[in-house]
């Protein structure tokens, strides 16, 4: 089976051509071309096996300065869990002070993934 899609790993946006057997989607069996770096190949394979995305959003913040705090997953999470993740995010409340990089939620959606703060808010 053949597939073509745009690589989202970096702003270059290479057009990736993927050839694979739907019966056997082990990464070593998937052929990738069109990528200009190894990360593209890795991305292409994960798109076939288990598509993942980094999620960014905001959570409610108790602060004098900002009403919402920008957050992100520190690693990509399963693409099909994005809306489940949003559901959890919408229920979170953080209080200032908070530093960029602080973990807001451990083992978020996938084990080993953290939801972290992206901005420092002092009060």
């Amino acid at each position: 089976m053949k597939k073509t899609f745009t690589c989202v790993v970096c702003p270059i946006g290479c057009e990736l051509h993927i050839e694979f057997d739907p019966e056997d989607i082990s990464p070593e069996q998937i052929k990738v071309s069109g990528n200009s770096c190894p990360r593209g190949e890795k991305y292409a394979k994960s798109e076939i096996v288990n598509p993942e995305r980094t999620l960014t959003s905001t959570v409610k913040l108790n602060s004098k300065i900002l009403p919402v705090l920008p957050v992100k997953t520190d690693k990509p999470i399963s693409k099909d869990k994005i809306f489940d993740a949003m559901h959890i995010i919408n229920g979170l409340i953080v209080s200032a002070p908070v530093n960029a990089g602080n973990v807001i939620c451990k083992d978020f959606i996938n084990k080993g993934v953290n939801l972290v703060a992206c901005r420092t808010v002092s009060e």
Partner: peptide, 12 residues
């Protein structure tokens, strides 16, 4: 826009 943004913001 960038091709990657069409992929990850619209196509997804």
């Amino acid at each position: 826009g960038l091709a990657r943004n069409i992929a990850q913001c619209l196509d997804d």
